[in-house]
Design a protein around this nucleic acid. Sequence first.
DNA 1: CAGGTTTTCTACTTATAGTCGATAACCTAG
DNA 2: CTAGGTTATCGACTATAAGTAGAAAACCTG
Lengths: 209, 209
Amino acid sequence: MRDGRLQVLLWQRALAPFAAAFALPGGYLLSGETLEDSIRRHLAEKVDVRELSHIEQLVTTGDPVRHPDEWQVATAYLGLIPSDLDPELPGDTGWYPVDQLPETAFDHGAIILAGRERLRAKLSYANIGFALAPRSFSISQLRDLYAAALGHEVSATNLQRVLLRRELLEPTGERRASGPSGGRPAALFRFRSHSLEITDQFAVLRPPV
Amino acid sequence: MRDGRLQVLLWQRALAPFAAAFALPGGYLLSGETLEDSIRRHLAEKVDVRELSHIEQLVTTGDPVRHPDEWQVATAYLGLIPSDLDPELPGDTGWYPVDQLPETAFDHGAIILAGRERLRAKLSYANIGFALAPRSFSISQLRDLYAAALGHEVSATNLQRVLLRRELLEPTGERRASGPSGGRPAALFRFRSHSLEITDQFAVLRPPV
DNA sequence: CAGGTTTTCTACTTATAGTCGATAACCTAG
DNA sequence: CTAGGTTATCGACTATAAGTAGAAAACCTG
């Protein structure tokens, strides 16, 4: 989440194929290397990987048409960075809104959309919000974050009750100072756990009718 | 589902490594081959792949410790065969209960359990029952199938109502002749669709308290 | 202190799922 | 042909989760 929108880190290619198109960070596996190690190694060239709050395997494609010259098998991972961290980026990379992608290289456009779907699903049946939200936040902040990620309005009242019932959130006991235009100061919450936990319910926050 | 239990097709290895241990069917990718094509090709040596009612990618592991001699990257798929099909099997393969696995080769034991978890989850928020059940079935049959796959008791009344509400089932209009010990003949149902569809609900059939 | 703003709470409604007992529709034995 | 056993189905009730709306709380500024 950057700028109130779901954005993805892309890198503008210099060389063919797909010169000038935008690609996900990545690269080749070294012999004997774990997939996740390799992802982290390649990503480290772009951002500080200690900032990753969550990473999970997304999909593996071996479709021969995905690369024009070479036959490749590629495994994509979904990685998340909390909204309050703002990593230094090299000049050829930047954040791009997922719902307004530039022209992408290879099959990266489809992979990004698959990642968004995975994220949306896990917002509804897991505690994956911890990977997007800052360590401490108000319910209104969290509502805006969920709304942007899910792509539809979310009720703050309902969100708070659902996440508290599932025991995913706990109050920090602090309150945020109210803004310049006044208003009641918001109580702050945090996620109880910062590792992925699946709930036994699903229907968090369908779009309002 | 075979014999009222969730079973997996395994193949007893003849050669080292893991000689005599049981392994999932599979093999090496050919150059230029799609992952799914490769799976179907290797599987065809064991069973008629036209009997597969569903197939989906499960997980890719590149952990160097998974094979003692060689560095491998392997992608596992989950494939399902309806309970009323009984493929001819070569002598070195057979069905083995997932909750009572023999000694497995490589990391195949963990992969099988991951497959079971995927299946259980999709029974709860998708129509994946179509891939396990016969084309036409009574609610009691379906209850037994769900109970065996989920690992806990399931109420037939509730199952029928939930699946009908989600519009996943439809009555065929036929009834099965009652068994030798009598009883009311059961109405027959079928799945409306035989391709995977995600529902917007989740909590089908939690274990009874 | 009045009026505006944001947050939070409470009550109500709706949707979905879980449970239990009654009833229906068949069988076989006598 | 009927009594009693068996399996399937239905209906009513309960429990839980989620969606909505409006009132109240807690701050701000002028």
